[in-house]
Design a protein around this nucleic acid. Structure first.
Length: 494
RNA sequence: GGCGGCGUAGCCAAGUGGUAAGGUCGCGGUCUGCAAAACCGCUAUUCGCGGGUUCGAUUCCCGCCCCCGCCUCCA
């Protein structure tokens, strides 16, 4: 089955056929506007894009991805002015925060993160605007700003499926644009005004700054060429942003700009869109402070199909935590089983292809995870019954490597287990997160507690045994009593 | 008003013209001194509502309702 994606342009599932038969594909993803810390709703979109890239790579595509950073617009200028610092200083701190956050969430870095204020792209934007004006697709109005003339671009409205005569103002935008020929004409170049302070660039139309939409057209074509395979963003970017990008870019190049438009649904809070303006948002540090890890947040934001709205709840966060614990436990067991050489071949289970096949189908993550958890139950059952040999366990671990190359949910910290009996440390089964078995000594205080507990258990002093288990737990180590003795495990984290 | 999306167990959620994956939570059991983990069992005669097509619809068609988003700040 070929890969297929839901293309916003056609509103249909389409087989994925990239331009380059050599499997190189170009993806452009709309990045953050760095006027404040991004919230986790923003990151839902970036995690979706990360899943997309990772799955394409698993399927053998060579992905070149660009994510822009919008570092000049009304909000960034206002933010800097209110903070009393230069624009570049203000945006720099939020850029830094953004990179921290994507690392915490294990989002692969794009190949390029072009910034709108880079002179190279300002020049490109000016060049594009000049071309649009020369073709009658843009004009400079009385207010000195340059606007795109949407009536001259017949396809305008096609992506959003809007009938331009029906466009209705929601009153959210200041009506200061009386000079436009059509209410739908959008700014390509915004003339400087006092509120802009020292922010501005010289252009053939006077001092000003780029409109929001043109930056993406310029950066996308500068870095990826006139035609790209996939363009992603949040569903709220469809109109006007992506609609405008098509008009500007195709207005200049005369070629079809994007083959597949993929848009991610919103993250909701209490059934409403998470947004800065509503104030119902959480940032990554907000959740980290509550004790959730990056991978737990990643899982929580990733587990629902990207085109379905996802309601953010604390219950959902805990569900993510428990689900990951199940995966961690399974990995630990598999690694222990893989380390044992029994010589007997008793495979009952074999990894299947359903995981990646589910993702082939418009990134059906729920079906993919469903198969993962089914596999976990089946292999656990086989291990319970001692019917899964080391070779099979290794096969499953190799399968997990593939799965994890897409999910990126491996626990960061190795889980270390030590069997302790009355005679001290008996067997050492240290299990690392990679393929390599790591020998790691347990901390002296943990060893002391565990040994004391073993003694208490020998004396059937259950109360003391339970107290010591609590103490170990407080240090992040879990004591479990198995038929081989007490097993002490450092909880996996990450 | 226009456009788009959603509605499946307490919660999250997959799915198919032939009788409901998976996760989480809860309950019961195996194991355990007790736990934990794992496994087993139970938990939607039913898929927003009303019609229609069909031998049969959650799945297709028509109508309606709810909620959410976009309609020039937004992932």
């Amino acid at each position: 089955m070929p890969l297929r994606f839901f293309n916003t342009y056609s509103r249909q599932l389409e087989d994925f056929e990239p331009r380059d038969t050599g499997r190189k594909i170009a993806i452009y993803t709309c990045g953050p506007t760095v006027y404040s810390r991004a919230h986790i709703g923003n990151f839902r979109a970036y995690i979706f894009e990360d899943l997309l890239q990772r799955h394409l790579e698993l399927r053998g595509y060579k992905v070149r991805r660009v994510m822009n950073i919008t570092d000049v617009d009304d909000k960034t200028i206002r933010g800097a002015r209110e903070a009393g610092i230069p624009l570049t200083e203000s945006t720099a701190q939020f850029k830094e925060a953004f990179f921290e956050d994507i690392e915490t969430l294990r989002i692969k870095r794009a190949d390029e993160f072009p910034a709108a204020t880079d002179q190279r792209y300002i020049d490109k934007m000016i060049e594009m605007i000049a071309t649009l004006i020369s073709r009658g697709l843009a004009y400079q109005a009385e207010d000195k700003s340059v606007y795109f003339r949407i009536n001259k671009f017949p396809n305008y409205g096609k992506l959003a499926h809007f009938d331009l005569t029906q466009l209705q103002s929601t009153g959210r935008v200041k009506h200061d644009e009386y000079d436009k020929e059509h209410i739908g004409d959008f700014a390509l170049w915004k003339a400087w005004d006092e509120e802009d302070g020292d922010v501005g660039w010289e252009s053939p139309w006077g001092r000003g700054r780029p409109g929001w939409h043109i930056e993406c057209s310029a950066m996308a074509t500068a870095l990826l060429g006139d035609q790209i395979d996939i363009h992603c963003g949040g569903i709220d970017n469809i109109f006007p942003h992506h609609e405008a990008e098509i008009a500007q870019t195709e207005g200049v190049t005369g070629k079809k700009f994007v083959r597949y438009w993929l848009h991610c649904a919103h993250l909701l809070v209490d059934g409403q869109k998470m947004s800065k303006s509503l104030g119902n948002f959480y940032t990554l540090p907000n959740l980290l402070e509550k004790g959730y890890t990056g991978r737990e947040i990643r899982y929580a934001l990733m587990r629902v199909h990207y085109r379905a709205p996802l309601n953010f709840t604390w219950e959902g966060m805990n569900e993510a935590r428990e689900s990951l614990a199940r995966i961690d436990e399974w990995l630990t067991r598999l690694r222990e089983t893989a380390a044992k050489r029994t010589g007997k071949e008793k495979n009952k289970t074999q990894p299947g292809q359903q995981f990646e096949q589910a993702l082939d189908d418009d990134l059906n993550i729920s079906a993919a995870l469903g198969f993962l958890f089914e596999s976990i139950r089946e292999t656990n059952r086989a291990m319970d019954e001692n019917e899964l040999d080391a070779a099979t366990a290794t096969e499953w671990l190799n399968w997990w490597e593939r799965v994890n190359s897409v999910l990126a949910l491996e626990p960061v910290q190795e889980s270390v287990s030590v069997i302790i009996s009355t005679s001290g440390v008996e067997g050492k089964a240290a299990v690392g997160s990679g393929r390599v078995i790591i020998e790691e000594a347990i901390p002296p205080d943990v060893a002391r507690l565990a040994e004391a507990r073993a003694q208490a258990r020998l004396a059937k002093d259950w109360r003391k045994s339970d107290e010591l288990r609590d103490e170990l737990s407080a240090r992040g180590w879990e004591a479990r009593d198995t038929k081989d003795g007490q097993k002490v495990t450092r909880r996996a984290g990450g």
